[in-house]
Design a protein around this nucleic acid. Structure first.
Length: 334
DNA sequence: AACAGGATCAACCGCCCCTGT
DNA sequence: AACAGGGGCGGTTGATCCTGT
């Protein structure tokens, strides 16, 4: 996207760091009118910036529904695992990490996680130990492959869904840097395409795979991808792929903890719904039903695990990560 | 205190895809 | 079918901050 004729005619567009004044202009314009056409926005908002710069500033920094600050250990694990599954598709990864931007995740990966994995002797690209001593079972590999295929299909469906529901959003929200941000309620996703995806998934009869969806369809404060096949507990837990497991709340105090169990020809996932008041709520084994269990990743946030795991102090943490990355390593790169 | 090197992250750039004409 | 405009994505850069010497 280059400069528009309008921008060129009007002279130089400003580059570099945004000032507080520019932020205010952008915020107040979007607050009143929504962003509409990004190209036309700078002129209307009185900004000497290109539309692209405005869009980036908004999506990566000013948007009210952005969570900033340190990544939790569960978010780290989720990023690592999603990266093993999806590769450098940061936007796709970001859809599974509520309130995190693709840019933030990308930076975090490049500056920290990649280095840590390298130090651990794990290739950050292939997610395999450098020594090449990966010991995955065939069923585990099949699981990951299947997951990847479905995740691709899901992402495509989601992209269509997003296009269908695309519209400018007037944000009546205060600026996050004023510490008065009110998270917006994302527009509820159209039910039909969402259900289609689930139907397809359920009818696949794929054993050793799992799905988990946000029953709110992305609304009600659950920012998970509405069609996500992966479970994240950032405020919304969903029962893993079973009508039996209908419990789902969006209170941010529960999570599904996955415990994979590889058997001869299939992988079973045992799920523990952890309620952070009562500690443990339910245990359901995916092998009870062919559809398989729910999203394995506890990509949650500070809610998860009740007490945050400080990986620097937890000597089991990286062992756990090693186990994590050893499983999705054979995911096809796409 | 001053400097160097590393770490972090906001922002830019170029490419690609989608959509409308 | 071809083209142009608009938007999104991933890679990269550069300024700033942090830490060690």
């Amino acid at each position: 996207m280059g400069k528009t004729k309008l921008e060129e005619e009007k002279g130089e567009v400003k580059k570099g760091p945004w000032t507080r004044d520019e932020d205010q202009k952008l915020l107040s314009y979007i607050d009143q009118h929504g962003h509409g056409s990004w190209r036309a926005l700078p002129a209307k908002a009185g900004l000497q910036r290109c539309g692209k710069s405005c869009r980036l500033r908004w999506t990566n920094y000013l948007r009210p529904d952005i969570k900033r600050g340190k990544f939790t250990s569960n978010e780290e694990k989720a990023i690592i695992r999603l990266h093993a599954l999806l590769g450098n598709r940061w936007s796709a990864i970001a859809t599974h990490l509520p309130k995190r931007t693709d840019n933030e995740i990308k930076n975090y990966w490049n500056t920290r996680l990649k280095k840590r994995l390298t130090r651990m002797g794990i290739d950050p690209i292939t997610h395999k130990p450098r020594s090449g001593s990966g010991s995955h079972s065939a069923s585990s590999s099949a699981l990951v492959t299947h997951m990847a295929q479905w995740e691709t299909a899901r992402l495509e469906a989601e992209a269509r869904l997003a296009r269908d529901s695309k519209r400018p959003l007037p944000y009546n929200k205060l600026h996050p840097i004023q510490n008065l941000a009110v998270p917006p309620s994302p527009a509820p996703a159209p039910a039909a395409p969402f259900l289609d995806v689930l139907k397809v998934w359920q009818s696949s009869g794929a054993r050793s795979t799992f799905f988990c969806q946000s029953p709110s369809g992305g609304g009600g404060g659950c920012l998970d991808s509405p069609t996500s096949t992966l479970n994240f507990s950032g405020g919304c837990s969903a029962a893993p792929g079973s009508s039996r497991m209908a419990a789902s709340k969006c209170e941010g105090v529960e999570e599904w903890a996955e415990q994979p169990r590889v058997e001869s020809n299939s992988v079973h996932y045992q799920f523990q719904l952890i309620h952070h008041d009562d500690r443990r709520f339910a245990v359901v084994d995916s092998s009870d039903h062919g559809g398989g269990g729910g999203g394995g990743m506890n990509g949650g946030d500070e809610y998860s695990n009740g007490t945050a795991v400080d990986f620097e102090e937890n000597k089991n943490y990286w062992n756990e990560l090693l186990n994590l990355v050893s499983s999705p390593a054979e995911a096809p790169g796409f």
